[in-house]
Design a protein around this nucleic acid. Structure first.
Lengths: 210, 210
DNA sequence: TGGATAACCGACACTGGTGTCGGTTAGGCT
DNA sequence: AGCCTAACCGACACCAGTGTCGGTTATCCA
């Protein structure tokens, strides 16, 4: 018998707590993202993590706690990424393009984060839903701050309803784009970003072109 | 005792099949929309419809069939509404605004339809997911046709990736706006639509204003 | 008025999920 | 070498949901 290195099949190596825990988290991210909170069973997550179901309870008190931990982690990730686009150099136009590109790249590399955070959770658990909504507001605030300064420079009244409307439109647009690209990954990244950024910056092309 | 008109509480009137069936459908629409497919039990729907759970099976073979029926109905509704905006009179700018307004008004009056059709269903059932994706493509096609003619007039090459990208951006923008308005219904309809339409048509406001 | 149809429901068997408890044993530490 | 922490798991009790079957009875209609 070989109990060498590879934890290939039966002779499963025992891992240290932290390592096992992080594998559980990783499995949870993809499993929750695929099937949603309610439809995901801890059994699925456990098998995906290469472990028995009860081991889950040695690391997390229950399903809810695991889920909360997972989405919080993913939220930090996403927010950081958006912020990096926002704080990039260049004029307003470049910053908008950079943020769009950041978001697109991020959702490409972390499709699970998008699903978990953007697809409304039909969880029925009020606290859980509140947390998710809080995350959404965090992101809106980030985008809002991206737009606010430039809009002020453009002479737009920030007190009017237009600021939140623009935030909603722009972030909806970015996410719609991300969802489309997830289904059509063959489209070249730069083309996609360019076309979208141009649309957001110049508006829809009209008869008196450019 | 009064068994007059109102089926208020206990003395529950027996209804004809079609009537009962449509009440079940109505209850199913709101219940599925609130909690999603997996998390919704037929028991919930039944109580919402004022009926015992087993009655459901006298009208629909199973949960899946009920759900499929419900989303198909809602899809027809939504598609019709979008189309009515698209085929409205006026120049391209007016048509874009009208479509936006149609969508916003529709999601306001039928928030369940939005949830059911736009929020990705984590159902794990392949056929079911395929149906939903089909609906999404239907809507994309509709928006595509709205844009295609006007873009052609504007001299845009319809074969490039920009058309689908624009469709994704525009529909994402519309839905992002709808979601925002659902959370902030105090904002006046016309202001919201105006701001969004202006953004889509003129792009983000820049320093050299209008 | 008296069927006959079908709307309605209670009870059941079954499945699949959750969280707990107690026991086993790998592997770091002295 | 041997201890002891904690990583790991099997088995259990429990609950919630699904779909079925057979019986009851309101209501239409001849």
């Amino acid at each position: 018998m070989s109990d060498v290195t590879a934890p290939v099949n039966r002779p499963r190596r025992r891992l240290r707590g932290a390592e096992r825990r992080s594998r559980i988290e990783a499995a949870a991210v993809v499993t929750f993202a695929r099937r949603g909170y309610d439809a995901t069973s801890l059994g699925e997550v456990a098998t995906a993590a290469g472990v028995t179901r009860t081991v889950m309870y040695d690391h997390f008190p229950d399903k809810r706690a695991l889920f909360l931990h997972v989405i919080a982690t993913q939220h930090e990730l996403m927010l950081g990424e958006i912020a990096s686009g926002i704080t990039s150099d260049g004029g307003p136009r470049e910053r908008v393009r950079a943020t769009l590109a950041s978001y697109l790249r991020f959702t490409h590399e972390h499709p699970e984060a998008r699903r978990l955070l953007l697809d409304p959770i039909p969880s029925g658990d009020p606290e859980l839903d509140a947390v998710i909504r809080g995350f959404l507001e965090d992101r809106s605030r980030a985008i809002s701050s991206l737009l606010a300064t430039d809009l002020a420079n453009a002479g737009v009244d920030l007190e009017s309803t237009s600021l939140p409307v623009m935030v909603a439109v722009v972030s909806g647009a970015a996410d719609g784009l991300a969802q489309w690209w997830a289904l059509h990954p063959e489209a070249p990244f730069d083309d996609v970003v360019d076309a979208a950024a141009r649309l957001l910056w110049n508006g829809l092309p009209r008869a008196g072109d450019p």
